[in-house]
Nucleic acid binder design. Sequence first.
DNA 1: TTTCGTTATATCCGTGCAAATATAACGATT
DNA 2: AATCGTTATATTTGCACGGATATAACGAAA
Lengths: 112, 112
Amino acid sequence: MSYKIKSRIWIESDNNVLLGEGRVHLLKAIQETGSLSKAAKSLNISYKKAWQLLDSVNRSAKKPVTINSIGGKGGGGAELTDYGKSLINAFDEINKNCWAFLDQQLEKIEAL
Amino acid sequence: MSYKIKSRIWIESDNNVLLGEGRVHLLKAIQETGSLSKAAKSLNISYKKAWQLLDSVNRSAKKPVTINSIGGKGGGGAELTDYGKSLINAFDEINKNCWAFLDQQLEKIEAL
DNA sequence: TTTCGTTATATCCGTGCAAATATAACGATT
DNA sequence: AATCGTTATATTTGCACGGATATAACGAAA
Protein backbone atom coordinates (compact mmCIF):
# COMPACT_ATOMS: atom_id res chain seq x y z
CA MET A 1 0.00 0.00 0.00
CA SER A 2 1.56 3.28 -1.08
CA TYR A 3 1.08 6.84 0.11
CA LYS A 4 -1.57 9.15 -1.31
CA ILE A 5 -1.42 12.92 -1.42
CA LYS A 6 -4.58 14.93 -0.90
CA SER A 7 -5.36 18.61 -1.01
CA ARG A 8 -7.99 21.18 -0.34
CA ILE A 9 -7.87 24.54 -2.06
CA TRP A 10 -9.92 27.65 -1.53
CA ILE A 11 -10.05 31.22 -2.73
CA GLU A 12 -10.16 34.16 -0.36
CA SER A 13 -11.07 37.76 -0.89
CA ASP A 14 -9.99 40.23 1.77
CA ASN A 15 -9.54 37.43 4.35
CA ASN A 16 -13.02 36.06 3.72
CA VAL A 17 -13.46 32.71 2.07
CA LEU A 18 -15.03 33.07 -1.35
CA LEU A 19 -14.96 29.56 -2.76
CA GLY A 20 -14.05 26.11 -1.53
CA GLU A 21 -15.16 22.64 -2.47
CA GLY A 22 -18.25 22.78 -0.27
CA ARG A 23 -19.33 26.14 -1.63
CA VAL A 24 -18.86 24.93 -5.19
CA HIS A 25 -21.01 21.89 -4.43
CA LEU A 26 -23.70 24.20 -3.11
CA LEU A 27 -23.58 26.44 -6.17
CA LYS A 28 -23.86 23.45 -8.47
CA ALA A 29 -26.88 22.21 -6.53
CA ILE A 30 -28.50 25.63 -6.82
CA GLN A 31 -27.88 25.53 -10.55
CA GLU A 32 -29.63 22.17 -10.76
CA THR A 33 -32.58 22.86 -8.48
CA GLY A 34 -33.19 26.59 -8.96
CA SER A 35 -33.69 27.04 -5.21
CA LEU A 36 -31.52 27.38 -2.15
CA SER A 37 -33.78 25.28 0.05
CA LYS A 38 -33.91 22.44 -2.47
CA ALA A 39 -30.14 22.63 -2.89
CA ALA A 40 -29.69 22.34 0.87
CA LYS A 41 -31.93 19.25 0.97
CA SER A 42 -30.06 17.60 -1.88
CA LEU A 43 -26.75 18.09 -0.06
CA ASN A 44 -28.16 16.97 3.29
CA ILE A 45 -27.19 20.16 5.03
CA SER A 46 -29.48 22.45 6.98
CA TYR A 47 -31.05 25.39 5.21
CA LYS A 48 -29.37 27.66 7.73
CA LYS A 49 -25.93 26.40 6.86
CA ALA A 50 -26.62 26.66 3.14
CA TRP A 51 -27.91 30.20 3.50
CA GLN A 52 -24.89 31.27 5.56
CA LEU A 53 -22.54 29.80 2.97
CA LEU A 54 -24.28 31.46 0.04
CA ASP A 55 -24.49 34.77 1.87
CA SER A 56 -20.76 34.59 2.58
CA VAL A 57 -20.00 33.78 -1.05
CA ASN A 58 -21.98 36.74 -2.34
CA ARG A 59 -20.52 39.14 0.23
CA SER A 60 -16.97 38.05 -0.67
CA ALA A 61 -17.25 38.09 -4.44
CA LYS A 62 -16.46 41.13 -6.54
CA LYS A 63 -19.63 40.61 -8.56
CA PRO A 64 -22.85 38.78 -7.59
CA VAL A 65 -22.65 34.99 -7.88
CA THR A 66 -26.37 34.29 -7.50
CA ILE A 67 -29.60 36.22 -7.87
CA ASN A 68 -31.99 35.41 -5.03
CA SER A 69 -35.65 36.34 -5.28
CA ILE A 70 -38.08 36.40 -2.36
CA GLY A 71 -41.78 35.89 -2.85
CA GLY A 72 -43.51 35.84 -6.22
CA LYS A 73 -44.26 32.85 -8.38
CA GLY A 74 -43.39 29.67 -6.50
CA GLY A 75 -42.25 31.69 -3.50
CA GLY A 76 -38.96 32.75 -5.00
CA GLY A 77 -35.75 31.02 -5.92
CA ALA A 78 -32.06 31.38 -6.57
CA GLU A 79 -30.05 31.12 -9.77
CA LEU A 80 -26.44 31.53 -10.78
CA THR A 81 -25.19 34.58 -12.63
CA ASP A 82 -22.87 34.17 -15.59
CA TYR A 83 -20.06 35.20 -13.28
CA GLY A 84 -21.05 32.48 -10.84
CA LYS A 85 -21.05 29.84 -13.58
CA SER A 86 -17.62 30.94 -14.76
CA LEU A 87 -16.28 30.82 -11.19
CA ILE A 88 -17.25 27.23 -10.54
CA ASN A 89 -15.85 26.12 -13.90
CA ALA A 90 -12.54 27.84 -13.22
CA PHE A 91 -12.39 26.43 -9.69
CA ASP A 92 -12.98 22.88 -10.90
CA GLU A 93 -10.29 23.25 -13.53
CA ILE A 94 -7.74 24.59 -11.06
CA ASN A 95 -8.59 21.84 -8.61
CA LYS A 96 -8.05 19.10 -11.18
CA ASN A 97 -4.78 20.62 -12.28
CA CYS A 98 -3.65 20.77 -8.68
CA TRP A 99 -4.38 17.08 -8.13
CA ALA A 100 -2.36 16.13 -11.19
CA PHE A 101 0.51 18.34 -10.10
CA LEU A 102 0.58 16.86 -6.60
CA ASP A 103 0.38 13.27 -7.81
CA GLN A 104 3.52 13.94 -9.76
CA GLN A 105 5.23 15.58 -6.77
CA LEU A 106 4.41 12.59 -4.56
CA GLU A 107 7.25 10.67 -6.15
CA LYS A 108 9.61 12.65 -3.94
CA ILE A 109 8.09 10.96 -0.92
CA GLU A 110 7.84 7.49 -2.39
CA ALA A 111 11.52 7.58 -3.28
CA LEU A 112 12.64 8.02 0.34
CA MET B 1 -8.01 44.00 -3.27
CA SER B 2 -7.59 40.90 -5.41
CA TYR B 3 -8.35 37.28 -4.74
CA LYS B 4 -5.90 34.95 -3.03
CA ILE B 5 -5.70 31.20 -3.43
CA LYS B 6 -4.83 29.03 -0.45
CA SER B 7 -4.26 25.35 0.01
CA ARG B 8 -3.72 22.63 2.51
CA ILE B 9 -2.06 19.38 1.52
CA TRP B 10 -1.58 16.19 3.42
CA ILE B 11 -0.31 12.69 2.84
CA GLU B 12 -2.32 9.62 3.71
CA SER B 13 -1.34 6.02 4.11
CA ASP B 14 -4.11 3.43 4.02
CA ASN B 15 -6.77 6.08 4.82
CA ASN B 16 -4.84 7.34 7.84
CA VAL B 17 -3.27 10.77 7.79
CA LEU B 18 0.50 10.54 7.81
CA LEU B 19 1.62 14.14 7.43
CA GLY B 20 0.00 17.54 7.30
CA GLU B 21 1.16 21.01 8.16
CA GLY B 22 0.39 20.62 11.87
CA ARG B 23 2.20 17.30 12.09
CA VAL B 24 5.23 18.74 10.32
CA HIS B 25 5.29 21.64 12.79
CA LEU B 26 5.24 19.14 15.62
CA LEU B 27 8.07 17.09 14.15
CA LYS B 28 10.19 20.21 13.68
CA ALA B 29 9.58 21.21 17.29
CA ILE B 30 10.61 17.74 18.44
CA GLN B 31 13.77 18.09 16.39
CA GLU B 32 14.56 21.39 18.12
CA THR B 33 13.69 20.42 21.68
CA GLY B 34 14.50 16.72 21.81
CA SER B 35 11.32 16.04 23.74
CA LEU B 36 7.63 15.59 22.95
CA SER B 37 6.45 17.45 26.05
CA LYS B 38 8.69 20.44 25.33
CA ALA B 39 7.57 20.44 21.71
CA ALA B 40 3.93 20.53 22.82
CA LYS B 41 4.63 23.48 25.11
CA SER B 42 6.41 25.40 22.36
CA LEU B 43 3.43 24.93 20.05
CA ASN B 44 0.89 25.78 22.76
CA ILE B 45 -0.96 22.52 22.35
CA SER B 46 -1.74 20.02 25.08
CA TYR B 47 0.63 17.12 25.62
CA LYS B 48 -2.28 14.81 24.93
CA LYS B 49 -2.92 16.26 21.51
CA ALA B 50 0.77 16.20 20.65
CA TRP B 51 1.11 12.59 21.74
CA GLN B 52 -1.95 11.53 19.73
CA LEU B 53 -0.58 13.25 16.64
CA LEU B 54 2.87 11.69 16.95
CA ASP B 55 1.41 8.27 17.66
CA SER B 56 -0.74 8.55 14.55
CA VAL B 57 2.26 9.61 12.46
CA ASN B 58 4.33 6.65 13.56
CA ARG B 59 1.50 4.18 13.11
CA SER B 60 0.84 5.45 9.56
CA ALA B 61 4.41 5.62 8.31
CA LYS B 62 6.14 2.76 6.55
CA LYS B 63 9.24 3.28 8.68
CA PRO B 64 9.58 4.91 12.14
CA VAL B 65 9.60 8.70 12.05
CA THR B 66 10.74 9.22 15.65
CA ILE B 67 12.45 7.20 18.34
CA ASN B 68 10.79 7.72 21.70
CA SER B 69 12.55 6.67 24.89
CA ILE B 70 10.88 6.35 28.27
CA GLY B 71 12.88 6.68 31.47
CA GLY B 72 16.62 6.93 31.64
CA LYS B 73 18.80 10.02 31.65
CA GLY B 74 16.59 13.07 31.87
CA GLY B 75 13.46 10.90 31.94
CA GLY B 76 13.52 10.10 28.27
CA GLY B 77 12.94 12.02 25.07
CA ALA B 78 12.04 11.87 21.42
CA GLU B 79 14.14 12.39 18.31
CA LEU B 80 13.64 12.20 14.59
CA THR B 81 14.96 9.31 12.53
CA ASP B 82 16.72 9.99 9.25
CA TYR B 83 13.51 8.93 7.53
CA GLY B 84 11.59 11.48 9.59
CA LYS B 85 13.98 14.27 8.66
CA SER B 86 13.71 13.38 4.98
CA LEU B 87 9.93 13.34 5.18
CA ILE B 88 9.57 16.85 6.56
CA ASN B 89 12.02 18.22 4.01
CA ALA B 90 10.15 16.59 1.15
CA PHE B 91 6.81 17.79 2.49
CA ASP B 92 8.02 21.38 2.77
CA GLU B 93 9.35 21.30 -0.75
CA ILE B 94 6.12 19.91 -2.19
CA ASN B 95 4.11 22.48 -0.28
CA LYS B 96 6.15 25.38 -1.63
CA ASN B 97 5.90 24.06 -5.17
CA CYS B 98 2.16 23.73 -4.76
CA TRP B 99 1.81 27.36 -3.64
CA ALA B 100 3.76 28.56 -6.66
CA PHE B 101 1.68 26.41 -8.99
CA LEU B 102 -1.60 27.69 -7.56
CA ASP B 103 -0.55 31.33 -7.67
CA GLN B 104 -0.01 30.89 -11.36
CA GLN B 105 -3.38 29.14 -11.79
CA LEU B 106 -5.17 31.96 -9.99
CA GLU B 107 -4.93 34.08 -13.12
CA LYS B 108 -7.83 32.07 -14.50
CA ILE B 109 -10.06 33.50 -11.79
CA GLU B 110 -8.75 37.04 -11.94
CA ALA B 111 -9.42 37.13 -15.67
CA LEU B 112 -13.15 36.53 -15.29
C1' DT C 1 16.74 1.53 45.88
C1' DT C 2 15.42 6.15 45.38
C1' DT C 3 14.94 10.01 42.49
C1' DC C 4 13.75 12.26 38.30
C1' DG C 5 11.47 13.92 34.06
C1' DT C 6 9.80 11.94 30.55
C1' DT C 7 6.39 8.91 27.64
C1' DA C 8 1.92 6.67 27.72
C1' DT C 9 -2.97 6.41 28.85
C1' DA C 10 -7.61 6.91 31.16
C1' DT C 11 -11.18 9.84 32.91
C1' DC C 12 -13.74 13.89 33.67
C1' DC C 13 -15.78 18.16 32.37
C1' DG C 14 -16.91 22.57 30.14
C1' DT C 15 -17.95 24.84 26.06
C1' DG C 16 -18.39 26.11 21.43
C1' DC C 17 -20.37 24.93 17.30
C1' DA C 18 -23.91 23.13 14.49
C1' DA C 19 -28.43 21.20 14.01
C1' DA C 20 -33.13 21.90 15.00
C1' DT C 21 -36.81 24.84 15.59
C1' DA C 22 -39.55 28.92 15.07
C1' DT C 23 -40.99 32.85 12.65
C1' DA C 24 -40.88 37.14 9.98
C1' DA C 25 -40.77 39.17 5.33
C1' DC C 26 -41.72 38.99 0.72
C1' DG C 27 -44.27 39.51 -3.87
C1' DA C 28 -46.54 37.23 -7.94
C1' DT C 29 -50.65 34.98 -8.78
C1' DT C 30 -55.46 34.00 -8.02
C1' DA D 1 -57.24 40.10 0.43
C1' DA D 2 -55.67 35.33 0.72
C1' DT D 3 -52.41 31.85 -0.50
C1' DC D 4 -48.01 29.88 -1.28
C1' DG D 5 -43.13 28.41 -1.06
C1' DT D 6 -39.46 30.70 -0.86
C1' DT D 7 -35.54 33.77 1.39
C1' DA D 8 -33.90 35.76 5.65
C1' DT D 9 -33.06 35.67 10.70
C1' DA D 10 -33.22 34.85 15.76
C1' DT D 11 -33.43 31.58 19.46
C1' DT D 12 -32.93 27.31 21.62
C1' DT D 13 -30.94 22.68 22.27
C1' DG D 14 -27.83 18.88 22.19
C1' DC D 15 -23.71 16.63 21.78
C1' DA D 16 -19.05 15.82 20.27
C1' DC D 17 -14.60 17.33 20.82
C1' DG D 18 -10.64 19.05 23.05
C1' DG D 19 -8.51 20.74 27.35
C1' DA D 20 -7.47 19.77 31.90
C1' DT D 21 -6.29 16.64 35.22
C1' DA D 22 -4.50 12.51 37.27
C1' DT D 23 -1.60 8.71 37.27
C1' DA D 24 0.94 4.59 35.77
C1' DA D 25 5.21 2.91 33.62
C1' DC D 26 9.78 3.34 32.63
C1' DG D 27 15.02 3.09 32.96
C1' DA D 28 19.48 5.50 33.68
C1' DA D 29 22.08 7.46 37.17
C1' DA D 30 23.42 8.65 41.75
